[in-house]
Simulated scan of single mutants.
Amino acid sequence: MSDFLQLVFSGLAQGAIYGLVALGFVAVFSVREIVNLVQGEYAALAGLTAISVVGTGLPLFVAAAVAVVVVVLVAVALERLTIAPIKRMTPLLSIILTLGVSTAVKAAMLLIWGPEALRLEPFPGSDFTIGGVSIRAQELWILGTAAVLGFLVVRFYEHTLQGKALRACAEQPTAARLVGISPRTATMVAFAIAGLVGATAGVVGAPIYLASWTSGLTLGLKGFVAATLGGLVSFRVAMLGGLMLGVLENLVAGYVASGYRDAVAFVVLLLVLLIRPQGLALKASGVRV
């Protein structure tokens, strides 16, 4: 029983990372119906940036803050350079465009940091054991950060006038313009939020799961799978989907074979596409994922 609980708890920590990345997909898609495949690279870039800043001698939390700010600025800059100039953006065009940007970002990280995976020093705290389950302090940081940030994002998008205005740009773009809501500004804000949650995932996850120029690909894929569970419009289902995916991966790795861990995401994605393409959220996005 303790082995099962250990796998579940570790899976929740891993799934919280996926959930944060998934929030970034939803944050952008729910505003402009753009599938942003650069989302996973935000996490990788933040982790590597934090490691470099710590290497200069700055405290860990200062380095984490610097990394998050840098990634948010990068996310906004990429949106201004690649998304904003396109007049008629479609989900398919956004996939092709952001895939190219993702490849360029990966190449830049490879040139700057090299091919080796790097580890960020862990956040403060002591590991302990409860009922035979080993709990690492960093996993508590991950779960706590994901809970707080997830709550704030949902609160902003669903319970504030500014957040509802952002979502109005996707649902009624013409009406949004008529009442003074700029879709261009809304898209920029959405990308900034996506950069924020992606960067946070990368920083809190780097002490355990490492950071490398390729880590964004895996995080992006699994975050996208979690986001599709909510039809790319539900923040709550996206976060829960990430947690579920992390637990399923750990259970498969623990009871079947570790080599099948990454196959879980593909199986879940295939089942969603075949059974309920609009996702598990009660509100459909109007676009098949």
Score class of each variant (00 low, 15 high):
residue 2 S to A: 15
residue 5 L to A: 15
residue 6 Q to A: 14
residue 7 L to W: 12
residue 13 A to G: 09
residue 15 G to Q: 09
residue 18 Y to A: 11
residue 20 L to S: 02
residue 24 G to E: 02
residue 30 S to H: 13
residue 34 I to A: 15
residue 41 E to L: 03
residue 47 G to P: 02
residue 47 G to S: 11
residue 51 I to W: 03
residue 64 A to G: 01
residue 65 A to D: 09
residue 68 V to A: 03
residue 74 V to H: 01
residue 74 V to E: 05
residue 76 V to S: 07
residue 85 P to R: 07
residue 90 T to W: 10
residue 94 S to P: 01
residue 95 I to W: 02
residue 101 V to N: 05
residue 108 A to H: 01
residue 112 I to K: 12
residue 128 F to M: 14
residue 140 L to Y: 11
residue 140 L to D: 11
residue 142 I to F: 09
residue 142 I to E: 12
residue 143 L to C: 12
residue 144 G to M: 07
residue 146 A to G: 06
residue 149 L to W: 12
residue 154 V to R: 10
residue 162 Q to V: 14
residue 165 A to D: 08
residue 167 R to P: 00
residue 171 E to W: 07
residue 176 A to F: 02
residue 182 S to M: 07
residue 185 T to Y: 10
residue 186 A to N: 11
residue 189 V to Q: 09
residue 200 T to L: 10
residue 209 Y to F: 14
residue 211 A to R: 01
residue 211 A to I: 00
residue 212 S to Q: 00
residue 219 L to N: 01
residue 233 V to P: 01
residue 234 S to M: 11
residue 239 M to Q: 08
residue 243 L to W: 06
residue 244 M to H: 05
residue 255 Y to F: 10
residue 266 F to C: 09
residue 267 V to F: 13
residue 274 L to R: 11
residue 278 Q to V: 09
residue 282 L to H: 14
residue 284 A to R: 12
residue 285 S to I: 05
residue 287 V to N: 04
